[in-house]
Design a protein around this nucleic acid. Structure first.
Length: 506
RNA sequence: GCGGGCAUAGUGUAGUCUGGUUAUCACAUAGGCUUGCCAAGCCUAUAACCCGGGUUCAAAUCCCGGUGCCCGCACCA
């Protein structure tokens, strides 16, 4: 489906729409409606079930979304947007103003206002290094982070977190004390992050406020044991940086054991495989639409030693898009915050060694994956539109429909209540024809419907208290006793957990 | 930010060039009749000219400015 078409459908059904819509919309901001909220929550629950299920030493936390200025100074985020840029109005290339002006002003341009820099460029007739035209302009400084006044004096600054990871680094010391004082220690955050993107575009893929699910694993660089047997038979769809440099774009399915033999650390490959499995097995992305894109040294941030982005091929966005990643960040983060806070963040292990833990980060874009779920599972099949979400992700699990509103409505109402009490996210619909209602349920991704008919309410008959249970994907119907419904659906409404290898028996 | 294109009910559209009655049609939505398990039919209802200014007796229509979206480029620690 094309982007416009998919977005229109999601908006019409109340999954999501542009924020401040009645004012024409706010760029890069989106609101979720009832179905969107429910889908997002189930996606987050599925993520938690999977990644917290990897180890008893991985814990959820919920850090603040507001970071005091010293924190973002230490993390490096503050310095990274202070470089004024010079843009060429002719060829549209962008350059660091400092680079362009290094000959006429060797002391640098730090602290100069954009207007002052523009004046320097004009005075010295600086030409565009790329096309040679005198068309350089200096736009107002671009702030990646949203800064806010903090405290009553207004002199202190705080920033909306540009990534949730920082909260985990800040919480590490506390969680070390709270926990079992062993490594590895994983901290999982599902939270909002904020970036003042230059050009928000492509709906949920470039937002100014978005939700990330991230797992930061702190580990001893000398030893990070993982249950590698759990993934030993897995093959991963890789796109190597070196092969890309040669112009190749084809995916190479490679076994995880070969990856380890090729030099990647076992702990890295294990978690990369788990991310791949989550996308394929829990979110139901077709394996052939997933690829693991290795970032070359120049493409990744300097502190990332190994980075593969998990990408999914989406028709609505015309190609592969990043939906998650695994970063080996070394000791960069704790090192920066150790220096910035003045607090020693090294820990003493049981063998007496003091180490500054390294970080493995598994990051996952919640909104992006919500979009990917819609792109990959929402299908127009002739007259029919079906949202084939895995049942445990469906916003509504069960539709309760009276075949005839008058005759079966009251019974269906009380059935609805009973099923809700059993913990099933059920919805009632009595309007229009039964076929139309099934169609609406299909479009909203409801995996199951029960229909109350004359047989259900027949006081004497043997079919009393039975209903037809309809499955979205097959449209098959079956007559079942009401009492059996919760048990029948329970397994299919629970998100999957990572598969573990059977214990080896000596 | 730059270049190009687009903007009419919830969705898709007619009307715009060539200004002129109450803005077209379909689907969707709500209620009713009918119907007894897959978007059937009939009746009724709700609902739109992106915003601001200008020209004109009169603007959805012409002009200017703005905003938003789409595509490409740039940007995306």
């Amino acid at each position: 489906m094309k982007l416009d078409e998919l977005f229109a459908l999601l908006r019409r059904r109340g999954f999501l729409w542009p924020s401040s819509e009645i004012y024409g919309g706010a760029q890069g901001l989106y609101d979720y409606g009832p179905l969107g909220v429910a889908l997002k929550r189930r996606l987050e629950d599925a993520w938690s079930a999977w990644f917290l299920g990897l180890s008893d030493d991985y814990y959820p936390i919920q850090p603040s979304e507001l970071l005091p200025e010293p924190v973002v100074r230490a993390s490096g985020h503050l310095e990274n947007f202070t470089d004024p840029e010079a843009l060429c109005g002719h060829c549209h290339h962008a350059f660091r103003a400092e680079t362009v002006l290094e000959k006429v002003r060797p002391e640098g341009v730090d602290g100069l206002a954009p207007s002052a820099i523009a004046e320097l460029i004009a005075q010295h007739h600086v030409l565009c290094p790329s096309c040679g035209q005198a068309a350089l302009t200096v736009p107002a400084p671009f702030h990646l982070m949203f800064g806010v006044d903090f405290g009553v004096t207004g002199r202190e600054r705080a920033y909306l977190a540009p990534e949730t990871a920082q909260g985990s680094y800040l919480a590490f010391a506390r969680m070390w004390d709270v926990g079992r004082k062993t490594l590895p220690l994983g901290l999982a955050v599902i939270g909002r992050a904020y970036r003042n993107e230059i050009a928000p575009r492509q709906v949920l893929f470039r937002m100014r406020a978005f939700t990330q699910a991230e797992l930061q694993i702190f580990f001893d660089p000398a030893s990070f044991p993982v249950p590698f047997a759990d993934v030993r038979d897995e093959r991963l769809p890789l796109l190597w940086a070196a092969r890309r440099a040669e112009g190749a774009t084809d995916i190479e399915w490679t076994s995880v054991t070969d990856l380890v033999a090729g030099g990647l650390p076992e702990f890295y490959v294990y978690h990369l495989a788990q991310l791949f499995r989550f996308l394929r097995d829990a979110l139901g992305y077709p394996a052939e639409r997933i690829r693991l894109f290795e970032k070359s040294e120049s493409e990744r941030a300097f502190y990332n030693r190994i980075q593969f982005d998990a990408e999914v091929r989406l028709d609505s966005l015309g190609g592969f898009r990043e939906v998650g990643a695994v970063h080996y960040r070394g000791d960069y983060d704790l090192g920066r915050h150790s220096k910035g806070s003045g607090r020693d963040l090294t820990v003493t292990l049981t063998d007496g060694r003091r180490v500054l833990p390294h970080v493995l980060e598994i990051t996952f874009g919640v909104d992006r994956n919500l979009w990917a779920l819609a792109d990959l599972h929402l299908a127009v099949e002739g007259e029919r539109t079906v949202f084939r979400l895995p049942p445990y992700l469906a916003p509504i699990a069960l539709g309760v429909l009276p075949l005839l509103k008058k005759d079966h409505g009251p019974y269906a109402r009380s059935l609805l209540d009973r099923l809700r009490r059993a913990g099933i996210a059920a919805a009632y619909d009595s309007s229009a024809s039964i076929g139309r209602r099934y169609a609406r349920m299909d479009e909203a991704g409801v995996p199951f419907c029960v229909t109350v008919d004359g047989e259900s309410v027949d006081p004497a008959g043997p079919t009393r208290d039975t209903v037809t249970l309809r499955e979205r994907d097959s449209r098959a119907q079956e007559r079942v006793a009401i009492a059996e419904i919760p048990a029948r659906l329970a397994d299919r409404l629970r998100p999957p957990r990572p598969v573990t290898a059977p214990a080896e028996i000596a």
